[in-house]
Nucleic acid binder design. Structure first.
Length: 259
DNA sequence: ATGGTCGGCAACCGA
């Protein structure tokens, strides 16, 4: 069978809800990872997902952050935090095991500016993900996905010379990402499309950024070998379909030949 | 082409 997963930074789940449902009805992923729901758990709109056959798991907070994972089948396990002894004050991690696949969904801190403490916290977050992965085996089917807030390579930003050293395309971030991946993960979109300049994020603050191609590839699907071998396709649904306003991110998805 | 960001939340913060 074909199993499809997707990741989408919705930038406000409640504001994006109708458009998200339209996208789900077309794309029909079996597993959907959301970031920046900006939605306290008590306000999470469960019904629209349940009506479409999804079980919603989520961890939100007021105004900021928030992650969710929606699955069509009963998951084997769900984790709402890193559970590594460190406090999880911000809602940036959720994981579920479905079809025998561990799906780790993270909203990596944006980092603000290179000289801000938030930038160091961003680098720490990658190290924390790496430690977390150490509890798993890279021979097992596992996906690390979400808004990773880093463009891995020059091909992944609109102007690599000008943006070199900017937050989101800083060598220290790229190194940390590479270091996590060295555990045993492959950037699936890039593996399947080695030369394609394809973005998943366009800054709202730049006028007509999407139209002008001023984007970044920040939303990722990194997978272990069993999923590299069974991958069928991966793409970004970059066409703005939402009215009145799309998210500043686009959904990214992947399909696998999976039992 | 004569404009120029969002969401959340209630003043401005974070992206």
């Amino acid at each position: 069978m074909t199993w499809k997963m997707a990741t989408f930074n919705v930038n406000g789940l409640r504001a994006r809800l109708a458009d998200l449902m339209d996208w789900i009805d077309t794309a029909r992923p079996d597993c959907l990872c959301l970031q920046e729901t900006k939605c306290p758990d008590s306000d999470f709109p469960q019904s629209p997902f349940q009506e479409r056959g999804y079980q919603p798991y989520f961890r939100g907070q007021k105004a900021y952050n928030g992650v969710a994972v929606l699955v069509r089948e009963e998951p084997q396990a769900v984790r709402l935090s890193f559970d590594d002894g460190q406090p999880d004050e911000e809602a940036r991690f959720i994981a579920a095991q479905t079809h025998g696949i561990w799906v780790i969904n993270t909203y990596v801190p944006q980092g603000r500016t290179v000289d801000h403490p938030a930038f160091e916290q961003k680098l720490d977050f990658f190290r924390r993900v790496k430690r977390y992965l150490g509890r798993h085996d890279p021979g097992e089917p596992l996906i690390w996905t979400g808004d990773l807030n880093v463009a891995p390579e020059p091909l992944d930003v609109y102007d690599p010379l000008r943006l070199e050293g900017e937050v989101g395309f800083h060598p220290r971030e790229r190194e940390e990402l590479k270091d996590v991946a060295a555990w045993g993960l492959t950037d699936l979109f890039r593996r399947l499309h080695p030369d394609r300049k394809q973005f998943s994020f366009w800054d709202y603050r730049l006028p007509s950024a999407l139209k002008r191609g001023l984007g970044w590839r920040l939303d990722h699907i990194w997978v272990t070998e069993p999923l590299v071998r069974t991958a069928l396709s991966s793409d970004v649904d970059a066409e703005p379909r939402t009215r009145p306003k799309p998210s500043d991110h686009a959904p990214v998805w992947a399909e696998f030949n999976w039992e």
